[in-house]
């Protein structure tokens, strides 16, 4: 399963990079979205895969009984998902406002710092 996921992650990365390299800015946004999902999955897989054993201490026990999924990777990803959402919302509104003001969605038109 790890090998399969490694391939899926590679595919997600490839798709994200390709979209990021487009001049259409909405495609870039989609690339960003895919990239953040891909990165989360990458961290998740690197933590090691454990089927159906969430890191929860059973009632009455002092500690969780191994094997259980890596809680640290999960905590990091949880933070990353939320921050990714913040980033995407901001980027989306930025793009939206730019399009409203400038009427263009081509990054090649966005060259000057002080238009």
């Amino acid at each position: 399963m790890e090998t399969l996921l490694a391939v899926v992650i590679g595919a997600l990365y490839a798709a994200a990079f390709y979209l990021l390299l487009r001049r259409s800015i909405v495609r870039m946004l989609f690339g960003l979205l895919l990239l953040s999902n891909a990165i989360n999955l990458l961290i998740f897989t690197s933590g090691g895969l454990t089927r159906a054993r969430p890191p929860i201490v059973p009632a009455g026990a002092a500690e969780a009984t191994p094997p259980f999924a890596d809680p640290l990777a999960q905590a990091l990803i949880l933070t990353a998902i939320v921050i990714g959402f913040g980033l995407l919302s901001f980027t989306f509104v930025l793009i939206y406002r730019y399009y409203q003001e400038r009427g263009s969605d081509d990054t090649a038109q966005m060259r000057a710092t002080d238009p």
């Binding site: 090998t3 590679g10 990365y13 490839a14 390299l21 487009r22 990458l42 090649a108």
Partner: peptide, 26 residues
């Protein structure tokens, strides 16, 4: 916006990058 040639270049580059990531995960 892009010409076919540059799209092909980007496809190759992205696939290479994706393959590299897969390798790194492994």
């Amino acid at each position: 916006y892009s010409r076919p040639a540059s799209r092909l270049r980007d496809v190759l580059l992205s696939v290479a990058a994706g393959a590299l990531v897969t390798l790194l995960v492994l």
